[in-house]
């Protein structure tokens, strides 16, 4: 995706210090149109500092942020209009209605009164708040406020959406709705920068993930690329009836299987990609009349990657 589509965001050598603490240390990455890039790291890793520099509200000590090749800084205005920023805090005015909140920020983005009204109506529909548009935000549920909060970042049809932990403190149902929304936005061609300390969200949403720790980007790539960096393999555990030795021989003949070991009344297979090779394994066993009673797949996840890269758990 990054090679075929135009680059929307480019961060080069970003550095930021706060007194004696280096919050961000030489971080570089790019995001292409239609790509969702996740910054994954624990609290305090530097994700929000990076996001703040990308959004042009924090000046880096060194490095550049370019949106479609145009530098972003705290003093520039034009490139900020291409960015939709959704900060971590629930940045809505509780004493204004949903429509008033959206209209205010739409007008700040430079939209005319008419254009703002049109975009507000559209965004209210996108975030599912049309029916409650004229209620004050203080009367919204937490999930509704969070949706309004995200909607504010979409008003001016940005080409880059920057989301800083958008599901923090949200109930599972609302979280799913928000993630579905974000996925749809990515499919519409929006470039998305997404920070989270939830491994599941990064795996579910992001095309590529940058693992950040203590201000440094320690690794980046697709989930599979990151797992491959560590030389990890997927494991398939099978509970089988009948001759275990025969079943082991059959499994070993499947091309994608790297290794087989008998464990109690079952087999443990080491493979490159469990999801891809599982059908072939089950088919081969079925042809040899080996009855499989249970299957368990164990894929190394980003939590494992983070643990290996930093020596610490993601949510420590």
């Amino acid at each position: 995706m990054t090679t075929d589509t135009p680059e929307v965001l480019s961060c080069k050598g970003l550095r930021k210090r706060f007194d004696d603490v280096t919050a961000v240390d030489d971080v570089s990455f790019t995001i292409a149109a239609g790509e969702t890039y996740g910054l994954l790291g624990p609290n305090g890793a530097g994700k929000t500092t990076i996001i703040s520099m990308v959004a042009g509200i924090l000046r880096p000590d060194a490095g550049d942020v370019l949106v479609e090749g145009v530098p972003v800084s705290t003093r520039t205005t034009e490139p900020k209009g291409r960015i939709g920023y959704v900060p971590q805090e629930l940045a809505v005015y509780p004493d204004l209605t949903g429509r008033e909140n959206l209209t205010f920020f739409a007008r700040l983005q430079g939209l005319s009164r008419v254009a703002a009204a049109r975009r507000v109506a559209h965004v209210l529909g996108v975030v599912g708040l049309t029916d409650r548009a004229d209620d004050r935000a203080e009367h919204y549920s937490g999930g509704m406020r969070r949706r309004l909060h995200i909607g504010m970042g979409l008003l001016h049809e940005p080409i880059l959406l920057v989301l800083d932990e958008p599901t923090a403190g949200v109930d599972p149902q609302s979280r799913n709705a928000i993630m579905d929304n974000i996925r749809e936005l990515a499919h519409s061609g929006l470039a998305i920068l997404y920070t989270t300390h939830y491994m599941e969200e990064a795996e579910r949403l992001c095309d590529r993930v940058g693992v950040i720790d203590a201000g440094r980007l320690v690794a980046e790539g697709t989930r599979r690329e990151l797992v491959a960096l560590l030389g990890e393999r997927d494991r398939i555990s099978l509970s089988v009836d009948g001759d275990l030795g025969h079943a082991e021989d059959v499994a070993r003949l499947v091309p994608a299987v790297l290794g087989v070991a008998a464990r109690g009344r079952g087999l443990e297979l080491l493979v490159h990609d469990a999801r891809q090779c599982l059908p072939a394994v089950l088919s081969a066993l079925a042809e040899e009349d080996v009855r499989v009673r249970a299957v368990e797949v164990d894929e190394p996840n980003l939590e494992t990657v983070f643990l290996h890269l930093t020596g610490r758990a993601l949510r420590g």
């Binding site: 703040s52 959004a55 042009g56 509200i57 705290t74 003093r75 205005t77 034009e78 490139p79 900020k80 209009g81 960015i83 920023y85 900060p87 971590q88 805090e89 629930l90 940045a91 809505v92 005015y93 920020f105 700040l108 983005q109 430079g110 504010m152």
Partner: peptide, 15 residues
């Protein structure tokens, strides 16, 4: 405190 200042500053306006 409410986080809206960050949103204001991220808008295409002069600080």
């Amino acid at each position: 405190r409410a986080g809206t200042l960050a949103r204001l500053l991220a808008s295409p306006i002069r600080p």
